[in-house]
Design a protein around this nucleic acid. Structure first.
Length: 570
RNA sequence: CGGGGCGUAGCGUAGUGGCUAGCGCGCCUGCUUUGGGAGCAGGAGACCGUGGGUUCGAAUCCCUCCGCCCCGACCA
């Protein structure tokens, strides 16, 4: 039994000055967590109880799925990370340190290498596979900007699993087992979530899905179709384009369009000098970018923006992608800023890419590669050839859903889980092979699966609170029942104590507010702030043999017989 | 890394050159109170982030550094 009279807890009346989001404010005010440094938090007793319950549920579901728990140190030598080049590639996000002999160490930000090496050290036959192992462990990432309290910390607890299979079919099966286990886990945790495609399988990337908990303060945006349930990261949205069905255009015509470096100014002059009815959607925007130092041109409709992040995610092999800057234009005098057209791309030696919306046969108003000049009836497939189609435009609310064509919405969420098919990258780099039936060495294929365990505390708080405090789902609340004794008579406190013991004997966890000094109001406020699902008030009504039973979430109150209240608990 | 804001007691804050740094919450003592963050009286608690400078005098003005928060960039 937890007694408020001795519990290491001091609730706060005011929101902490450094907190912005609800979960952060409430977890601090309710005495669950305290900040130690940016993105680094301590757990107080109530918070740690909730944290441990979440951890327990995660562990139970992993074990049920047949995955084996292991544990790695957080303090790791540099060498394994050198083997995969991540000591360098991970950059400043790694916490690095040296031992007394000046050898390099790091605090593990993620453990692919260690898992791979562990399996390599023990197993060497296809008969040993499939294997899935996991750990629940503290990770360290020196985030450029920790934020939102416990949601994005520099030290956090993650459950990470890895699957090892001999072939792609095995990987797919392991992936599905993890997916199913995650669904059970998050359902038990009482988290609302969507499973979102994170990378397009069609583009040849590895399969990957994120579990996103919708939440207005979330830092991830994703696309959701309320009609059919389709959900995807903006990067992964695949545009469904119908073939061009309009009429074919007359021959390309050069237009005199002085002072029209922007789409708006172009549309204005088109409507003035070349018959009305033009909109930005009739024009073709030629966006120039530098891809690993080489200029490329990406075509999008004039009423659309290029989403560089999304474009980059869909251009496999490109590491560094950025928009053209003035000095790039200076180096490529053929490309006239504001008047670029695709017609001469081949001549200029520029790779021509296009959003799928630029369909074969469609014709556009676009630049004529000469200052103050545009061209119309510029037809795709006739006047220019697209070298490669790529998802490039910024996805907007109202865009057609890829699966059902209804308009989509853009929603915000917090990532609570991520599953993906890693493939053979780490196995290859660390030479993890097993012998197959024929005695030939085969590189193992891996999957990687993560759940933000400490983050889940904040996500549940974020999704489950109201104006007056937290409202924990039963499975993760720091206790099952919060008994509040009010009044000054010893008899009340004695009766409450007796009740607390009875309830505890039935297997419920009890938080007992046995404080004599604070007034009833203070105790009620604290109970509401802490958010234990069932609150029993022992006070005035005791004279009639009754206590009050409250449901924190619904606010429902009822007076019930003291000796019947135990049977009314779930 | 770019932009903005901030740093005064455990928490929230007032104090723009001049007496002993003020208030609320919380904490301690006593009395009264006890179903919605009680009242009265007394008390403890502050290197005003750090270092330097200007000044007769600095929490207050200037500079350095450190730390924190927000937006963006970046990132699972």
């Amino acid at each position: 039994m937890l007694r408020m009279s001795t519990l290491l807890l001091r609730t706060l009346r005011d929101d902490p000055a450094d907190a912005e989001v609800a979960s952060h404010k409430l977890l601090v005010r309710a005495g669950f967590i305290r900040r130690v440094a940016a993105g680094i938090y301590s757990w107080l007793p109530l918070g740690y109880r909730t944290y441990r319950k979440i951890e327990k549920i995660v562990r139970e579901e992993m074990d049920k799925a047949g995955f084996q728990e292991v544990n790695f140190p957080a303090l790791l030598p540099k060498e394994p990370y050198d083997a995969t080049n991540r000591w360098t590639e991970y950059g400043p996000d790694i916490f690095r340190l040296k031992d007394r002999k000046q050898n390099d160490y790091l605090l593990g930000p993620t453990h692919e290498e260690m898992f791979t090496l562990m399996v390599k050290g023990e197993f060497s036959s296809y008969k040993d596979l499939p294997l899935s192992i996991y750990q629940i462990q503290t990770k360290y990432r020196d985030e450029p900007r920790p934020r939102s309290g416990i949601i994005r910390g520099r030290e956090f607890v993650m459950k990470d699993s890895y699957s090892f299979d001999i072939d792609d079919a095995g990987l797919e099966a392991s992936y599905q087992r993890h997916r199913a286990a995650y669904i059970k886990t998050f359902d038990r945790l009482g988290i609302k979530y969507n499973i979102v495609s994170a990378m397009s399988g069609a583009m040849g990337g590895s399969k990957s899905e994120e579990f996103l908990a919708p939440c207005p303060t979330g830092e991830d945006t994703y696309v959701l179709c309320k009609a059919c349930g389709y959900a995807a990261n903006v990067e992964a949205v695949v545009t469904n384009v119908k073939p061009y069905s309009g009429t074919s255009a007359p021959a390309l015509e050069i237009l005199n369009t002085p002072n029209t470096p922007t789409i708006d100014s172009l549309v204005e002059i088109l409507n003035k000098n070349y018959g009305g009815g033009f909109t930005a959607a009739d024009t073709l925007k030629n966006v120039l970018l530098m891809a690993d130092g080489k200029p490329i041109s990406v075509l999008v409709p004039g009423d659309r923006e290029v989403d560089v992040k999304r474009l980059g995610a869909n251009l496999s092999g490109v590491k560094d992608l950025r928009l053209f800057e003035d000095e790039d234009f200076a180096k490529h005098p053929n490309l006239v800023k504001g008047y670029v057209g695709p017609q001469d791309a081949k001549k200029f030696g520029i790779k021509l890419l296009a959003d799928p919306r630029i369909t074969k046969g469609s014709h556009w108003v676009t630049g004529a590669n000469k200052k103050d000049t545009h061209a119309r009836f510029v037809t795709c497939g006739r006047d220019f050839e697209v070298e490669q189609y790529v998802e490039a435009v910024e996805i907007k609310a109202g865009d057609a859903c890829p699966t059902c064509d209804k308009p989509v919405v853009i929603d915000r969420a917090i990532e609570i889980g991520h599953i993906f098919q890693l493939g053979r990258k780490y196995a290859k780099a660390l030479d993890l092979t097993v012998l197959d039936k024929n005695g030939a060495a085969q590189v193992v294929t891996m999957g990687s699966y993560g759940i933000g365990v400490s983050r889940a505390v904040a996500v549940i708080a974020e999704q489950s609170h109201d104006e007056i405090g937290l409202c924990w789902p039963a499975e993760v609340a720091p206790a099952d029942v919060h008994i509040v004794a009010t009044g000054k008579e010893d008899s009340i406190f004695e009766a409450a104590e007796k009740l607390a013991n009875e309830i505890e004997a039935k297997g419920f966890e009890v938080l007992f507010d046995d404080r004599r000094d604070p007034s009833a109001g203070v105790k009620f406020k604290d109970a509401e702030l802490i958010g234990i699902p069932k609150i029993i008030i022992v006070g005035k009504a005791l004279a009639n043999g009754k206590v009050e039973l409250r449901d924190r979430k619904s606010g429902a109150k009822e007076e019930v017989d003291l000796n019947k209240v135990v049977s009314l608990l779930k």
